[in-house]
């Protein structure tokens, strides 16, 4: 058990290191010198040097004790992300943004989860039923519409034309006023894919031999679905759930952009267009850590749920 956990943690740490290396290479090497952009067109060499010094880009890239990469790692490991381009503390900025984003993404995740599992279960159980077939087609239709269209059309009709919701975020509005529409749109856009995903999982279980044997023993449909099938389907369900949790704090870039919600998604988009690599690095680093933590949690869930999984031997 201890050996397994240590192995997992070592792997996770090297993966986090890899994430930092990739983002570093992307931004600092391929991305090129950004001090020109920061300084503007007609800045003198002096200004440029000052900016480079502040950004730390005057130092060697790799392979030195005081190189940019080493500092990059050092700062991340101490959660000291520095200042963003608009001179705010990045750590604080991320905390504030994440709070707002989570208020948006957690309801979307839970709503999608509950709706998709319920609908998926029904559609898998009554596969040939007319309603299930209509539901299946609706899902394919929903899967075929871009998220952008969901957002724009939803905002245009539900908020702008029919005035059921506020069109835009406004600091005076309470979250209960500005959040429902983006949440509804988020759930609607993801439902098609998710329902079919869970339906396929449940269908595979329902068609398996152990369900037939349970029926041959006289077990009724409710017990088969909610006890036998659900427990077996737990592995892929948990996998999907646990691996979507780490990205929740990032919010939804598109939803936040359109509804003007000042969450982390908006911050990331702003940072991308401002080439504020420090902010991006910090966000990527945090998500890598969360992914690592939740990977270990997923492994523990597997072991708790499935007697065939043995942590001592790995899977």
């Amino acid at each position: 058990m201890a050996a397994f956990v240590i192995k997992k943690i070592v792997f996770a740490i090297t993966a986090i290191f890899g994430v930092m290396l990739i983002t570093f290479l992307l931004f600092n090497c391929i991305g090129g010198d950004i001090s020109y952009e920061y300084a503007g067109r007609n800045a003198g060499n002096e200004t440029l040097d000052k900016i480079r010094k502040e950004l730390g880009t005057d130092k060697p890239l790799l392979f030195f004790a005081d190189s940019q990469f080493v500092n990059h790692i050092k700062n991340a490991a101490t959660f000291n992300f520095g200042l963003s381009r608009d001179r705010e503390d990045i750590g604080r900025k991320i905390r504030q943004g994440a709070k707002i984003s989570l208020a948006l993404t957690i309801p979307i995740l839970l709503g999608t989860f509950v709706i998709s599992i319920a609908a998926g279960l029904i559609m898998a159980y009554r596969e040939k039923n007319l309603l299930s077939r209509i539901g299946n087609w609706l899902c394919i239709v929903g899967m075929s519409i871009p998220f952008l269209s969901f957002i724009l059309l939803g905002q245009y009709y539900l908020a702008y034309k029919w005035k059921l919701f506020p069109v835009y975020f406004w600091p005076d509005l309470s979250p209960f006023q500005y959040l429902p529409l983006p949440i509804i749109i988020g759930i609607a856009a993801g439902a098609g894919f998710n329902i079919r995903f869970y339906k396929t999982i449940f269908r595979n279980e329902i068609e398996s031999e152990y369900v037939r044997f349970a029926m041959a023993r006289g077990v009724g449909p409710a017990r088969i679905l909610f006890k036998h099938v659900l427990k077996n389907a737990m592995m892929p369900i948990i996998t999907r759930l646990v691996f979507s949790i780490p990205f929740l704090f990032m919010g939804s870039v598109l939803l936040e952009k359109f509804f003007g919600i000042p969450g982390l998604g908006s911050i990331v988009i702003d940072a991308l267009s401002a080439r504020d690599y420090k902010v991006l690095n910090a966000v990527v680093f945090l998500s890598a850590i969360l992914v690592a933590v939740f990977t270990v949690i997923a492994d523990i869930c597997y072991a708790a749920l499935d007697p065939r999984v043995n942590l001592e031997q790995g899977n």
Partner: peptide
């Protein structure tokens, strides 16, 4: 359902696949 398992029962061809693994 009342007949299955009580009055008619069946031994399946592949025991390894027929039990619920969890």
């Amino acid at each position: 359902r009342k007949i299955r398992g009580a009055q008619i029962s069946m031994i399946f061809q592949q025991p390894a696949a027929s039990f619920n693994p969890v």
